[in-house]
């Protein structure tokens, strides 16, 4: 079920200002049939650069239509420079908020407005250049320029948010590492820290790794060996190779080789990393 406010539903069921406009002074078209939503915004602008009428035509879901309707209501009567200050958040707020996953509908409204005004000012080339750069999300045709702009304006810090606002990364997901890099670049290291923490294990520093190996031996391995009168000592760690020395009863135990691989190495693989290889180093007599 949709989590729409009454205001969203009202603007969907009774959209304001939809339809065609004869001889519009400015037109902004964004989105496409392939992407699942598209908006054509048409404006009448008088000699004082005031928006005296706004109409839209939208292909899209309930919130896309409601966002378009809200946009036209918001900007009517505004000077074009004033209108350029309208943010996608204002569109969403006008509707009493949008579900997070639908924020891209408000972004689409804002984009159409910018495009229309840029065309009117004869700056459409500059406008498109700003939004250009390489296409990051090939599924939805989202450029690096657009991503940076939306991330900056909405203070986005996670890939999920970026997908909600721009759709980028929402289909094949191949561009997610790229989006992470762009967020990092725009918002700085702090913003993406949250994203990195779950994969911390894979990025252990050498020291952390050695400490973890030692901790695992002390906590998971030693006690079990000691029950049988044996013991183990960590000698060295060299890349993937962990050198240990089996002591006490283990020294002459015929199943020491088995213990080493099936128990010691298995535990280290489980708690530290799959790549580890355990080697028994006999103590120098």
């Amino acid at each position: 079920m949709w989590d729409y406010t009454d205001k969203v539903l009202d603007h969907f069921y009774n959209p304001r200002n939809y339809g065609d406009m004869e001889n519009p002074d400015a037109v902004g078209e964004v989105g496409s049939l392939a992407c699942g939503d598209a908006l054509k915004l048409m404006l009448k602008i008088d000699e004082n650069k005031k928006i005296i009428d706004a109409k839209f035509k939208t292909f899209g879901c309930g919130s896309a239509i409601a966002s378009s309707s809200a946009l036209t209501e918001l900007i009517k009567g505004m000077n074009i420079d004033e209108a350029l200050q309208v943010t996608n958040k204002q569109i969403a707020d006008y509707l009493g908020g949008l579900p997070e996953a639908k924020m891209h509908c408000s972004v689409m409204g804002r984009e159409a407005l910018e495009t229309a005004i840029a065309t009117y000012k004869g700056e459409s080339k500059k406008h498109y250049e700003e939004l250009e750069g390489r296409i990051v999300c090939k599924c939805f045709g989202v450029t690096e320029g657009k991503l940076k702009k939306v991330i900056k304006e909405n203070h986005l810090s996670t890939v999920e948010q970026v997908t909600n606002y721009t759709k980028a990364g929402g289909a094949c997901t191949a561009c997610i590492p790229d989006i992470e890099d762009i967020i990092k670049e725009v918002m700085g290291e702090i913003a993406v820290k949250k994203e990195i923490s779950p994969v911390k294990r894979k990025r252990l520093t050498n020291i952390q790794r050695i400490l973890l190996i030692r901790e695992t031996i002390d906590r998971e391995i030693k006690p079990s060996l000691q029950i049988d009168g044996g013991d183990i000592e960590l000698i060295d760690v060299d890349g993937k190779d962990v050198y240990v020395s089996l002591r006490g009863a283990c020294t002459n135990c015929p199943s020491a080789g088995f213990t080493l691989k099936s128990f010691v190495e298995a535990k280290l693989k489980e708690f530290v990393g799959e790549e580890l290889n355990v080697i028994n180093e006999s103590p120098v007599e």
């Binding site: 949709w2 539903l9 969907f12 069921y13 049939l33 699942g36 939503d37 292909f59 899209g60 879901c61 309930g62 896309a64 239509i65």
Partner: peptide
């Protein structure tokens, strides 16, 4: 063609 499914469902839902 040329309309979106969720919009249709919302209309039907009403």
């Amino acid at each position: 063609e040329f309309v979106e499914g969720e919009a249709i469902l919302l209309m039907l839902d009403k």
